[in-house]
Computed example of a mutant assay.
Amino acid sequence: MLKQLSHRIKMNMTLSIKKVFEQYMASIGWDEKQYDVVKFMEQWRHYLYNEATWFAELDDQTKMNPQFHEQLAVRINEIIDQLVNEPPTDEQIAEINRLTERLGIDDFPYGCKLEAKYHIERLQQELKKKKS
């Protein structure tokens, strides 16, 4: 069913999955112990029905089709798997090292590109506060 969707809708779907996952993980501070699939799916459903313009464009028959939602769930898992397995860039690693050194923070673990992005933004905010 997903294969029948337009390229634009499939791209927007992928971007939506990434956006919601990134927002959810930021909301729990990228603490894997706090990850709750039920809470993530609640956030996903809220986004899907209230913010995803691509979903609003689908016909009601597609939206109600269990096969569509099964395939969408598989796609969500694939995207999340890709996201958590995408290594941080060399630039991100260097930036985290620079920021932790300036802040006097010991090394801390980060496993993927999105998590590194989260920590860079967090550490930059921390540095701004420290300078104020």
Rank of each mutant, 00 (worst) to 15 (best):
N50L: 12
Q23M: 15
N77H: 05
Q125S: 15
D60K: 00
E121M: 15
S132Y: 02
I105A: 01
A52R: 08
T100L: 01
T89A: 13
Y47G: 05
K18D: 07
L5D: 11
P109C: 04
G29Y: 04
M11Y: 12
V74K: 15
V38P: 01
G104S: 03
H69F: 04
A52H: 06
P88A: 07
Q92T: 13
I28P: 05
L127Y: 15
L15N: 15
N97W: 01
D60C: 01
W44P: 12
Y24H: 10
I80K: 04
I79T: 03
F108H: 13
N85A: 04
E57I: 13
E57Y: 10
L72S: 10
R122M: 10
D59P: 00
I76L: 06
L15V: 14
K63F: 00
E101N: 05
L5Y: 08
E32G: 03
L83G: 01
K33E: 07
Q23V: 13
I96L: 02
L127D: 04
K113Y: 11
L5W: 09
V74A: 13
Q43H: 10
L5N: 07
A73T: 12
I120H: 07
E95S: 05
A26E: 12
F40D: 13
I79M: 03
E95W: 06
E115N: 02
I93A: 06
A26G: 09
R45M: 11
I80P: 07
T14K: 05
E91C: 00
G111L: 10
E86W: 06
R102M: 08
E32T: 11
L58W: 08
A52D: 13
P87M: 14
I9T: 14
S132K: 00
I93F: 03
F55Y: 15
I105R: 03
T53I: 05
K39D: 14
D59Q: 01
R98T: 01
R45S: 15
V74W: 13
R45D: 15
L99Y: 05
N97A: 05
N97T: 06
N12L: 13
Q71V: 02
M11Q: 09
A94T: 04
L123K: 02
A52E: 10
V84D: 04
V74S: 12
N65I: 00
G29W: 06
R122V: 04
I76A: 11
Q34W: 00
E42P: 00
L127W: 11
A94D: 04
P109W: 08
D59T: 00
I79K: 03
V74L: 08
M13N: 08
G111D: 08
Q23K: 14
K113S: 11
F68V: 00
D36T: 14
N50I: 07
E22R: 11
F68T: 00
V38Q: 15
